[in-house]
Design a protein around this nucleic acid. Structure first.
Length: 971
RNA sequence: GGGGAUGUGGCGGAACGGCAGACGCGCUGGCUUCAGGAGCCAGUGGUCGCAAGACCAUGAGAGUUCGAAUCUCUCCAUCCCCACCA
């Protein structure tokens, strides 16, 4: 076998690319700037992970195609080297982070060289470079000056093992994201960024940016908007200064069912501090609860506070409890408890025997499918009902609306033709509701379907039925309404609306079945199964709101008790300070007289000193706090003695703006050059891992939006939402190994070096892309890489043969095949479907080989077609294609060549395979010319022997014809 | 508990609502080779059949459709993210 020397070739071209700077766009005068960005890695010094390479290669392929499509592609790389990852690694191997960073840097850049990406090396950056973090600090100062950075004492997440505070985002189920230790709550003074100010904007803009849907959903959930009302409850026994309790609720419609209140231990403590003389057991409970905060979910516990409040709707006195199931950080730290309609309140009420009052009755709807008739019912408003019935034979739907004011629930039923309607109704109602007394409308004959309703009046339940029937069989209908029920409209509606409606009915049917579960009390289960349904429920025991739909009552009740309609967000301010060593010092100075002052801009950067003892201390202080020469300084305002902030900032701040620095790394006087930024931003395509859905990707957006609003930043490109840095983001999937997640503990981490040594970077790149769709992730298996290695060997074989003088009559079929492939590969790369693009290249090569005697490719394969093939392959295997391109006598890099174009006419074949189906089953395939009409196709098909015999003696009812594709005979 | 995703041969995975299983791995047989390996040729979802072919197959069940892996609903399984958010 002809082995190509990938080691030599790859080295040769990597050197060439670097020297000729073929991946360096002209940042000043580029005509068609395309910023292709990939998330930069944090160097862990164990070297580049194959997962990094997977991500980079995927992004690189896209960039390479764009470059060949005549864009000025800018594809920078750097290192996210500051932060806890790198620091912990240094601690582990007992190295100084500052020295270790240099080691990691070297190793990473070497590795990044050999994977063959088109990086713009001249613009590389490292977050721990003072030239870089000078501006990270500058950003901090700007935010501080504009009130977007503030210092506050707050309960924070404290990791006792890492000895630092963590952002909420870094706490996973009560444990530290990094080391898994249980996180404690501590009260500390910390620096925050006011990201909550942007909650609404961050949410809104999600609708306008082109991102992987799963990432958008994650962000939406993280921001966690809920609409509700804030309502005040006054305290009846006002023994101390607190006179009222404010709560936030998303269900103000259930206010009449609020039978008690619960406050969080934190709030209780606040009250105590404000002078509340709480009973001993309350104090005990609070102390204990506060100690246990952050622990895993456990059974709810609580104590009665001895205080009572007034329910503003019922004016009744209700007890106030203290319990740890109420969180301090969300809403007001106090809730109104509606045990009938909230799972947690229900549990609590059951445990402590508190009253439960049901105030929303579910809407019972049932449908049946009998005799082809599909009845249904839709509740539109409080006092109008719409029913839709499908005609059993024709494709028609009947839509009926009528008004009624005194009902509570509806039942829709179908009955058999000829069955006595009254009997059916009686049976149905008794079975479904258990209501015994009923009055029935008599059957008047010819009934195919009927609708009923029953009304239920609070405790004193009664049911009455009203029948509406119509004759569908002969197309006539008869409508009957009694004196109370007026039919308002009868209209035919279109199918789409009916389909939507029927889906709704199906949902309701499910709810019905759940609701009829005799457990607990009626309604509870139904209401908790789906908030959507509970809001479709009807109010009861709610004074003048009885009978109103919950949805409507929501805001009416809010108004009634002087509540405020409000939106709350789960998102909380970004905690940016870290009591660690390996980060950019926060550029703030504290003076006893002048309070907090930012370091003057001309004094930046505040250099991180190289200190010996960089171990975290665990006192809530950074190791820098033991370095006098660092923290002793003068107040920039009064020049008095002052103390420098010794905390450093979160790594996520470093990575929240790196993309702005890349095009401007050579700018000395500003974090980003105005013109360059206008020209190159926002980023055209951002690629990275979905694991950064909420952390990094939210922070970056926040910062860009804020900098825009403060007029510190201006993007010039693209019509994307103002200030959004990444109008298009694609998350790649996770690469696993033989079915398991790669992890050091399992020892199954794939080291790319090893594979590059064995197979070459081209093979590894292409294999990674071939495994599975890029956005899905894939399973790395050693055995499968051989297929790609073989493919490249064969490419080499053909390429070597193509050095010979071309033959006289190349095969036109190959030209067509290659043209089809151009289309396929171009579209696949655009969609990031690299696996199928690779497959298309393999098919093309198979065809080339199949149509040519071995080693005589130059005679049948047109040179231009081979050049196209190489160009299409170039993004995947940049080295081998460059070498073969040179072998053809070309002087310039293939990566600067123009991407091949295809001729639609050439792709189109004159004939196609007509699929002949009988009743949708494939029976024959006939080759006919393109554009064949239905009539011709039908004739050809019916003359086919096989079809003839299959259709002998049967009548064709209908023929379905899809042009240039198939013909289907329905018999 | 909530949210999201995914279920197709022995495996990774293909398939604008229109020939299910492209491409690759693996496997089987043959050629070649001292041998190992590699290469080349043929085959490879299941059942029945000498064959032509027929039937069955995309987690299970229903629905829509002339026609469903694909759209809708229910259930099951697996994975990921979040988790007492009122």
């Amino acid at each position: 076998m002809l082995k190509y020397d990938f080691g030599k070739i790859e080295k040769k071209w990597q050197k060439y690319w670097r020297e000729k700077k073929i991946y360096e766009p002209d940042l000043k005068s580029a005509k068609r700037p395309f910023y292709n960005l990939m998330m930069f890695p944090y160097p862990s010094a164990e070297g580049l992970h194959v997962g990094n390479m997977y991500a980079f290669t995927g992004a690189d392929i896209y960039g390479r195609m764009k470059r060949m499509q005549c864009y000025d592609v800018f594809q920078p790389i750097g290192l996210d080297g500051f932060g806890i990852h790198s620091e912990n690694y240094a601690l582990k191997i007992k190295a100084h982070p500052m020295e270790q960073a240099k080691v990691s840097e070297k190793r990473f850049y070497e590795q990044l060289q050999v994977i063959g990406n088109g990086f713009a090396w001249d613009e590389k950056l490292e977050t721990y470079d003072p030239e870089y973090y000078k501006w990270t600090q500058w950003i901090f100062v700007q935010l501080f000056k504009r009130g977007l950075a503030y210092r506050a004492k707050a309960p924070v997440n404290w990791c006792p093992s890492c000895k630092t505070v963590l952002a909420d985002e870094q706490v996973i189920t009560g444990r530290c994201e990094r080391c898994g230790t249980l996180v404690e709550r501590k009260e500390l003074e910390q620096w925050f960024f006011r990201i909550t100010k942007y909650a609404e904007k961050l949410l809104e803009n999600l609708e306008k940016i082109d991102w992987s849907e799963r990432v958008k959903i994650a962000q939406r959930n993280w921001i966690g908007k809920s609409e509700g009302a804030s309502i005040k409850f006054s305290i009846s026994s006002s023994q101390f200064s607190i006179k009222e309790i404010e709560v936030f609720t998303t269900r103000p419609d259930t206010l009449y069912g609020a039978t008690f209140m619960v406050i969080s231990p934190e709030l209780a403590k606040e009250w105590v501090d404000a002078g509340w003389e709480a009973p001993e057991e309350v104090k005990k409970h609070v102390a204990e609860a506060l100690r246990n905060r952050g622990e895993e979910q456990k059974e709810k516990t609580g104590v009665f506070s001895g205080i009572s409040a007034i329910n503003p709707a019922t004016k009744k006195e209700i007890p106030v409890w203290v319990s740890d199931y109420v969180l301090a950080g969300y809403g007001t730290g106090a809730i109104m408890a509606v045990p009938a309609h909230d799972e947690r309140d229900w549990e609590f009420a059951k445990k402590y025997k508190l009253p439960i009052v049901e105030v929303v009755e579910p809407l019972f709807v049932k449908t049946d499918d009998i005799d082809g008739v599909r009845p249904g019912l839709l509740l539109k408003e409080r006092d109008a009902v719409v029913a839709v019935v499908k005609h059993w034979a024709e494709d028609k739907y009947l839509c009926l609306k009528w008004k009624k004011t005194d009902w509570r629930g509806f039942i829709v039923g179908g009955i058999e033709k000829g069955e006595d309607m009254a009997e059916a109704a009686a049976r149905e109602i008794r079975e479904e509701t258990g209501y015994k007394s009923a009055k029935f409308v008599r059957d008047l004959g010819g009934i195919v379907h009927a609708l009923f309703y029953h009304a239920v009046k609070n405790e004193n339940r009664w049911a009455r039925f009203h029948g509406l029937y119509f004759e569908l069989a002969d197309g006539k209908r008869e409508e009957i309404a009694d004196e109370e029920n007026q039919i308002h409209d009868v209209v035919w509606v279109d199918k789409k609306e009916v389909d939507r409606f029927l889906d709704w009915v199906t949902d309701m049917r499910l709810i019905w079945h759940r609701a009829s579960n005799p457990d607990d009390f009626p309604g509870r289960s139904a209401l908790h199964e789906s908030s959507r349904v509970s809001e479709q429920g009807i109010l009861t025991r709610s004074g003048k709101f009885d009978g109103m739909s919950a949805e409507e009552a929501k805001w009416k009740i809010t108004d009634f008790v002087d509540g405020k309609r409000e939106s709350h967000y789960r998102l909380r301010d970004w905690l940016v300070s870290r009591q660690r060593y390996w980060g950019p010092p926060i550029p703030m100075i504290h003076c006893d007289k002048c309070s907090w002052q930012p370091v003057p801009e001309e004094d930046l950067p505040v250099i991180l000193p190289k200190i010996k003892d960089f171990q975290p201390k665990g006192k809530g202080e950074s190791p820098l706090a033991s370095d006098k020469s660092f923290y002793e300084t003068k107040c920039p305002k009064c020049s008095g003695r002052a103390r420098r902030e010794t905390d450093v900032s979160d790594t996520f701040l470093d990575s929240a703006w790196y993309y702005l620095r890349y095009p401007s790394v050579k700018e000395k006087n500003a974090p980003w050059n105005k013109e360059t930024t206008k020209k190159w931003l926002p980023v055209n395509l951002y690629t990275g891992g979905a694991e950064h859905s909420v952390l990094h990707l939210l922070y970056v957006r926040f910062l860009a939006l804020a900098l825009h609003d403060e007029k510190l930043l201006e993007f010039g490109k693209s019509p994307a939402p103002h200030g959004e840095p990444f109008p298009k983001f694609r998350a790649h999937g996770l690469l696993i190994k033989e079915g398991a997640k790669m992890s050091k503990s399992k020892g199954n981490v794939v080291n790319p070096d090893e594979y590059i040594k064995r197979f070459g970077a081209d093979t590894l790149r292409m294999y990674l892309m071939f495994i599975a769709p890029f956005e899905q992730g894939g399973d790395f298996r050693d055995s499968s890489i051989l297929g790609v290695a073989r493919f490249l060997e064969r490419v080499w074989k053909v390429g070597v043969a193509m050095e010979n003088p071309p033959g006289e009559d190349p095969d036109p079929a190959l030209t067509r095949i290659l043209s089809q492939m151009i289309k396929k590969v171009t579209e696949d790369i655009e969609d990031l479907h690299y696996n199928t693009a690779v497959s298309a290249l393999m098919i093309a090569l198979n065809d080339i080989e199949a149509r040519t005697p071995v080693n005589f490719y130059h005679q049948t394969l047109a040179r231009a077609d081979w050049e196209s093939f190489l160009k299409l392959l170039a993004p995947f295997a940049p080295h081998i294609t460059e070498e073969l391109w040179e072998k053809l006598g070309n002087k310039n890099s293939i990566h600067k060549e123009k991407w091949p174009e295809y001729d639609l006419k050439l792709i189109r074949e004159e004939t196609f395979d007509l699929i002949v189906e009988i009743n949708g089953k494939h029976r024959a395939t006939i080759s006919v010319s393109r554009g064949t009409s239905e009539k011709e196709a039908s004739n050809v098909a019916l003359n086919e022997e096989k079809i003839k015999s299959l259709l002998a003696g049967v009548k064709i009812k209908k023929t379905i014809f899809v042009k240039d594709r198939l013909i289907n005979f329905v018999v």
